[in-house]
Design a protein around this nucleic acid. Structure first.
Lengths: 266, 266
DNA sequence: AGACAAGGTTCAAATAATGAACCGATGGAC
DNA sequence: GTCCATCGGTTCATTATTTGAACCTTGTCT
């Protein structure tokens, strides 16, 4: 394992539940030598990826991340395209909105936007990315992909939650089918207790599902009315999101997302 | 120079004007060996700090930055974020530095630091804060805000000093224009006798002025040479302050603050 | 005072980073 | 079509950087 990877791993130790830690904490979490961890932390701090509280000597994520993330949002075409529409959606929903792209069967974050209005908000954790079958995003993706993709996904053990038993294919097929009919996928308290979500697929230029967009909200704040509201909002933005990423929504999906009104132009 | 530092240096090569680059570009910019640069780029990509365009093989900033910056914004209090940079600025200036956020037309203290460091958090001033038009901060804010904001501010009597007559709009417009051109606002003995100040705006993520940073100094200690020195110092830190608060400096303002040198390498 | 854990440092030993040379692919120029 | 330049990427012996056990120093709890 390269020194670089080891150092960058340290940044992944930080999470919403543990936003700062001392040298000893980091040492325990990694199992590496204290001196090593210390030099890595120092190097990261030197470069601004961490900063150290002057009083407690604890480390926390540093300002360089803000700077670079801003640059990425401004300059990476894909992000720049999606950003506007996601920010708008997030504002309308008042919840955390997340766009992820599929790399193999991993969901990697493209952009996310959050509203700080609500006292209770959903925070997503940085600890690895959740397995495909544990997320509404994953199901939304599968529901709008050709059948073969599901088989491939089932064959890969990393797509289910560790410890869980292999998903039942028939039950899954039924669920995916209903998602495809409904136009969106949902999860209630599936991945983390208290967190629900709705998700839709994002299509590429060849009209294949290649990414997803989801809204996460605290279950406490959401009855089925809330789910319906957010899902409607999400589907109403579906076309904009796909097109912002340079893709095309297949006509049949589009007709689910905007049922009655013919091709409303914003 | 540590391997980690070398790798992280690569991320700093990316800029708004050059948001993506190939291996050779990075190799030239760093002067390091191609193999070395390649391994570093790969390591960064592996960890999500860079991503590679599938078609052009060019590298650009990756999604991990978005993820971590979001976490930082959620977990690190605003005050903590500005603290480091303000403390540094205060030390360099040797004077009182003040960061205030705008709530409506009230300036609310976020953090301030004095030279002989006893950093004190002030969340709210019981006496109310000085009116907008009486402070260099207020003028800095208005000078970098859209025209409509000035009209709103003029319509609100609480923005001028009690007892004073309503400000003359034309004179004010001229002053704001010259502030926008100069890059900073100034006050000499305006609010309290013997106290002068210089101020710049702080921008939010949408590049709108949303807060201010000012340096106050005794008029007795300051000729125009002192004003120039402090203003330069202030503008040189402008970008850091804005980014520490999670914002972005508009390019035109940035070019006033750091006129000639682009991409200075320390 | 004593014991313990915290952050941080040292220096010989060992491992991981390095770079010159090499490979295959792409894309003009002629 | 051939030649040449440039690109991204890889190899492997050499080298230099990272590593970690032991050691400081400071602060806190008993």
């Amino acid at each position: 394992m390269s020194t670089i990877a080891k150092a960058l791993d340290l940044l992944d130790l930080f999470s919403d539940s543990q936003p700062q830690m001392g040298l000893s904490d980091a040492q325990r979490l990694t199992g590496r030598d204290k001196a090593t961890v210390h030099r890595h932390l120092s190097a990261l701090e030197e470069a601004g990826y961490l900063e150290q509280d002057a009083a407690t000597r604890a480390y926390r994520l540093g300002p360089a991340l803000t700077r670079l993330a801003g640059m990425r949002a401004r300059t990476v075409p894909e992000v720049e395209m999606v950003r506007t529409v996601i920010d708008r959606l997030s504002r309308a929903a008042g919840e955390l909105v997340h766009v992820s792209r599929l790399h193999g069967f991993d969901l990697v974050d493209v952009y996310h936007a959050e509203q700080h209005d609500h006292p209770v908000r959903v925070s997503f954790d940085a600890y690895g990315l959740p397995p495909l079958f544990a997320t509404s995003s994953g199901k939304a993706y599968l529901a709008f992909s050709p059948g073969g993709v599901l088989d491939l996904a089932l064959a890969d053990p990393r797509t289910w939650l560790p410890g869980a038993k292999a998903p039942d294919k028939d039950a899954l097929l039924a669920e995916l089918k209903s998602i495809a009919r409904r136009g969106y996928a949902r999860n209630r308290d599936a991945l983390r207790l208290g967190v629900s979500s709705v998700a839709i697929p994002v299509f590429d230029a060849a009209a294949r599902a290649s990414a997803t967009c989801s809204i996460a909200y605290p279950t406490s704040r959401g009855g089925s009315a809330q789910e319906t509201r957010l899902a409607r909002l999400l589907m109403a933005h579906g076309r904009d999101i796909t097109e912002a990423m340079g893709g095309t929504v297949p006509p049949d999906v589009q007709s689910i997302w905007t049922p009655s009104r013919e091709r409303a132009v914003s």
